[in-house]
């Protein structure tokens, strides 16, 4: 059902956890549909210095969360903003078709965290 890469990220997820006093937090999904993803950002200048996630969901939800954190660590915010859910799925070697819509929201959570960070910055200024 799942690719080896998905199973690897599910079994050994990268960057699980939370950041204390994060610069940005984003959350998508809801418990009703069975997936909640939360992403924490630590931003320095324009660079994502650290990123962590917490996810409630199926194997695909965990694996996409893990993958997106790996993809954006060290990237600029603008680079991170253009990463799509489809790109995350592709980096995992694909997802089963029925998972593409319900559990493939990690990039959305990341974008929500960046938006949250930018809003906080605007308030400071």
């Amino acid at each position: 059902m799942y690719s080896e890469k998905v199973m690897d990220h599910f079994t050994n997820p990268r960057n699980v956890g939370e950041i204390v006093n994060p610069d940005g937090v984003g959350e998508v999904g809801n418990a009703k549909c069975g997936d909640i993803m939360r992403i924490y950002l630590d931003v320095e200048g324009d660079i994502i210095k650290d990123v962590k996630f917490k996810t409630f969901g199926c194997g695909a939800a965990v694996a996409t969360s893990s993958m997106v954190t790996e993809m954006v660590k060290g990237k600029t915010l603008d680079e991170a903003m253009v990463i799509s859910n489809a790109a995350v799925a592709e980096a995992l070697g694909g997802l089963p078709p029925e998972k593409m819509h319900c559990s493939n929201l990690a990039a959305d959570a990341l974008h929500a965290a960046i938006v949250n960070y930018r809003e906080k910055q605007e308030k400071k200024e």
């Binding site: 799942y2 199973m7 599910f10 069975g34 997936d35 409630f56 969901g57 199926c58 194997g59 939800a61 965990v62």
Partner: peptide, 9 residues
Amino acid sequence: FVEGESLLL
């Protein structure tokens, strides 16, 4: 607080 498919896997 956990999801069934993750448990099954």
